[in-house]
Design a protein around this nucleic acid. Structure first.
Lengths: 209, 209
DNA sequence: CTAAGATTGGATCGTCAAATCCACTTCTGG
DNA sequence: CCAGAAGTGGATTTGACGATCCAATCTTAG
């Protein structure tokens, strides 16, 4: 017997699709605020305004739903980040990105952390499928950052030998670590320190002029 | 009626203390591997070799136990880190610390993450007492790092105007973010990139010679 | 040595969550 | 328009977990 979780077919009617979407959106919200384990099917049922059977009509089990939430949040974050990162054409643009990240964290006083980071911390060790999906999400996010840095190399802002791969990973780790600390300390101090330190190092890699 | 969780008195006999310690140690291990929510009292009962009533004899409820585990892990981490950080007298010593952190992560393939980081991600938003304790733990950890950097300022390795506070926070965030990503990606790449980038920036702050 | 208090074992209770079932209604392709 | 598939509602089953109770045993101060 396989331990693999079965996949459900996509809804074939538009009504079905709407219901499925409503469930995923509500689940994403609840899981962001209470964690995956902290989100019960009764609570989700009420939040999404569906009956319990709908949830299991569209998702094989809670793991399957969780994976849908990961996909949803990945998409949300990339959609939010990619435009900002695509036009990283100057050190100023990099600082603007920094400000957006920090302002977002400040808005809810550090609470919540990163939607992907929280899920990753909770699920990676015990849900291999979730872990794989989250690893891919982080890789895609890092790639988007790297793309931005590559732009800065391309237009001569950064030296050609700049290790954009490494810097992208360092920036992503700074975001994740900074958000995690913000969650505990209710301050964005660590997030700012981490981002500013990495960015300062990037400044030092700028082409002399 | 108060929502505050009552504190239990410390055990008065040495046997009682041993039992309490055994419970905390087993709980710390289980919570590290399965999270706080993922650690059930039956599982803890078996792992610690006690009966369920013991747990509630020594701890008011699961929250109280969780706080004890936070204290336990904080103590464990500080005991492990402080000696290393106390003798940060050179850039080489800083790199040695980096190696220890990375080797530790590599040892279990990134699994588990940081005991404090994982608990923080899980508890900060919903358990104010745990959040406060964890915030204090992180502050103490950052202070230990800063102490080491101050040593390097004191002996002239780093410039006097070095912002050790900020760098300490940046290093801690790099550790937390790097470990979180290592958990998802099963690689220490991001951890290395983050630490090396911050450390490279510290190198640049070294006094010219 | 001996009571008072500390500690222990394990049955038990109430609650709640995950998942299933089945009867009913709404869609939609031909 | 009308079968048959898709979608819906809600009761229900099953099992686990946090927490409590109480009787029995050990520890220690006097």
């Amino acid at each position: 017997m396989s331990t693999q979780t079965a996949r459900k077919d996509a809804p074939s009617t538009s009504k079905g699709r709407a219901t499925r979407d409503r469930i995923v959106a509500a689940a994403a919200d609840l899981m962001y605020r209470h964690g995956a384990a902290g989100t019960s099917t009764p609570a989700l049922r009420d939040a999404a305004g569906v009956s319990s059977s709908q949830i299991y009509h569209y998702f094989a089990d809670k793991d399957d739903l969780t994976r849908a939430v990961i996909a949803f949040q990945t998409q949300a974050i990339l959609a939010n980040q990619t435009p900002l990162l695509a036009k990283l054409d100057s050190l100023n643009a990099l600082n603007a990105w920094r400000d957006v990240v920090i302002d977002a964290a400040r808005e809810h006083g550090g609470t919540g952390g990163c939607p992907l980071g929280s899920l990753s911390s909770e699920l990676s060790d015990h849900n291999p499928q979730a872990r794989t999906a989250l690893a891919a999400s982080f890789t895609a996010w890092a790639a988007a950052i790297r793309e931005g840095l590559l732009g800065m190399v391309g237009n001569g802002t950064l030296r050609p030998e700049t290790d954009t791969d490494r810097l992208a990973l360092a920036l992503l780790a700074a975001v994740q670590g900074g958000l995690l600390l913000a969650q505990a300390q209710h301050t964005t101090g660590a997030l700012e320190a981490a981002l500013d330190t990495v960015i300062a190092h990037i400044h030092d890699q700028a082409t002399p002029r």
